Simulated scan of single mutants.
Amino acid sequence: MFNFFIIMDEIQGNNIARNFSSEYFNYTINFIISKEFPALTDFPDFSLILCDLDKNIELAKKHNLPVIAFSHKNNRQESLMGTPWLILDTDGLSPFFLNEVYCRHYKKPLTITTTNRCIIRELTTRQLPELLQLQEENKNNPSGCFFPQNCTTYAEAEEFLQNYIKNQYAFYGYGIYGIFNKENETFLGIAGFSPFENVITSDTLNSKEKNFKISENLSEKIPEKKSKNISEHCSEKTSEKYPENDFNEYSAEIGYSVLKKWQQQGIASEILPPLIHFGKEYLGFTKIVTRIEKNNIASIRLAKKNNLKILICQATEQTNS
């Protein structure tokens, strides 16, 4: 339970607390409302600060407390530049936002959502062995891997994961997450979002050889000719775009990959709906697409059940070179 210190005019603070409690009546939180910064040497665990004055932001920083600045019409003279967290309207306060502020401040993995059996949470370096196992299981299916194909050693994978954790979640606000068993924290797989690449550049792929195709009708014929990994052919000479009215900067690609020993247990069916809801309601994605190989009928059915735009792709041919 968070101890939420609201340090500002007490009438305004009480209104914020009352509105929050009314909106999220099932969420337990301890409000401490004060006009002046509390004269405490040690703050209780799970403390958060909401304030509207620069001096109180600085005091919160001295105590190493996560602090949210509130800008309103009566404090325009304040810069509020001492914290990365700023709200212009108290409607921006939510349980998830408070948890995000806390986790970012203390560099803890953020829980995205939960289901009956699973927790979807940001990755940590502790998952490196399981991610490498997932990589090995999907060596002929790059879309099921976490690491890029040029990560060929343990050290390269470790460095990539460290940089991903450090930069991806905080900067972009989303990424690929771990799927964990709710009871025992066992790692089950990965799921999450990546930016949708609206443009494929190639000087060799033409309309007959293109190995990606948007399809809402599974009976549509997919080109029979397969290509090697598309990255081998890419250049900047030509480009082909998907319809601009279908995808924009608010589009994202959703994907998931489950370790073999946990497959065929309904994990993907369970985690996909709440993850899509999170992407639309919290991240603001207006279009979500999923990339599925042509012969993966189960995933295609699951995507259609969840009203996802399906990007059918041919399985890539692997070479021994």
Rank of each mutant, 00 (worst) to 15 (best):
M1I: 00
N3H: 12
F5Y: 14
R18L: 11
F20T: 00
F20L: 05
Y24T: 02
Y24G: 02
F25M: 09
N30D: 13
E36W: 12
T41R: 15
D42L: 14
L48E: 02
D52S: 06
I57C: 04
A60E: 02
K61P: 01
K62H: 07
P66S: 04
A69H: 06
S71Y: 14
N74T: 13
E78K: 11
M81R: 12
W85N: 14
L88K: 11
T90Q: 15
D91F: 01
S94G: 07
S94D: 09
S94C: 08
L98K: 06
V101H: 03
C103N: 04
R104G: 04
K108L: 12
P109D: 02
L110Y: 03
I119P: 04
R121V: 00
L128V: 00
P142Q: 04
F146I: 04
F147I: 00
C151H: 07
T152F: 13
T152Y: 10
A155V: 06
L161D: 02
I165L: 09
A170G: 05
G175P: 07
G175C: 09
I179Y: 03
E183F: 08
N184I: 13
G192F: 09
P195N: 06
T201G: 10
T204L: 15
S207R: 15
E209W: 06
S215V: 05
L218A: 06
E232M: 09
K237Q: 10
S239C: 14
P243T: 06
N245P: 00
D246Y: 14
W262R: 15
A268R: 05
L272N: 02
H277E: 07
G279S: 08
E281V: 04
E281P: 02
L283D: 02
R291M: 07
I292V: 02
N296F: 07
I297P: 01
I300W: 04
L302S: 01
K305H: 04
N307P: 11
K309Q: 09
C313E: 11
C313I: 04
N320W: 12
S321T: 12
